[in-house]
Amino acid sequence: MPAPLADQLTVIIPAYNEAASVADTVRSVLEQTTPPARVIVVDDRSTDATGTLARAAGAEVICPPTNTGSKAGAQNLALDVVDTPYCMAIDGDTTLAPDAIERLMVPLADDPEVAAACGFVVPRHVSTVWERGRYVEYLLSFTFYKPTQDYYGNPLISSGCFSAYRTDRLREAGGWSERTRAEDMDLTWSFYRAGHGVRFVPDAVCYPIEPPDLDFMTKQLKRWSHGFVQNVGLHWKGILRLPFLSTVVGVALFDAVVASLIYLLVLPVLAVALGAPLLLLVYVIDVPAVLVPVLVAARRRREVGRALLSLPCFFVLRTVNGFFMLEALITEVVLRRPLLVYEKGH
């Protein structure tokens, strides 16, 4: 493995009312096998003890005069004071595996064309329906879809909860943009359009806290669905020239629309109209196909029992997800009412 670049790295942690988790996040960064040069927590005018706890855990804390209104705003504030060639964004509720930074920096060290690298995401708590659904979703996505995207050169998103960047490339892109509700997707696609590379590193693992209930999940899914639609609207002309990325985005959009219509309208209507309740089995017809990559990932993590127990929740989450995708398409494209408010999912 090449020499890690962690000593040339600044970690940025945007935080708003993260008193329950920010100290764990800071400690998990400082206790890395290759600790970074700086850890900056942006306390975005929290009303709890986020800043105090982050400082006590060993981070530098900066605080804007007023709440920036978004994660991107808080991250940009820290980007202005970064003086290292590399920087990293980690959510205030996300902890890292002990060697996560060392592993994530490898593609940046190996290839000067790589502008960003992202890692494998696993929910830290897996107990509610929503956390379990997300757990299976991540195992599936990060075991089968993302490595395939990476092989063909275009991971769809360098996840905002844990990604490393070349600081100069990030500044050239204008930092994290606030023009969409999915700043990580926007930045990733902007990198591709500028001719830079993004890599996925499956061995670099992070553990965010996922929305534990429907209320928080609603906020997150709404933000992600609207963010996806906004990014397609913003970038579609530019990414059409990137063969693999445009195909992946086109297929994802097509599939998301078709899926939402099938789950929410076609299946229930057909089952009732034809008097064929067994048609509803189509909701779970891909259980074995989903199980294959999920069990492979779970076996590596020695969590096969947890994965099997969580599997039904994935199908609940998928159906709920369909509702929010339709809502986003109708609101953004038909009604022309873009989502402008950044509400964190948890």
Binding site: E137, Y138, S141, Y145, I157, Q220, S225, V248, G322
Partner: peptide, 16 residues
Amino acid sequence: MNNAGLPGTGIGGLFY
């Protein structure tokens, strides 16, 4: 589903 947070029918899965 072919990316976390996006629903899918399996057509996307077929692509991958």
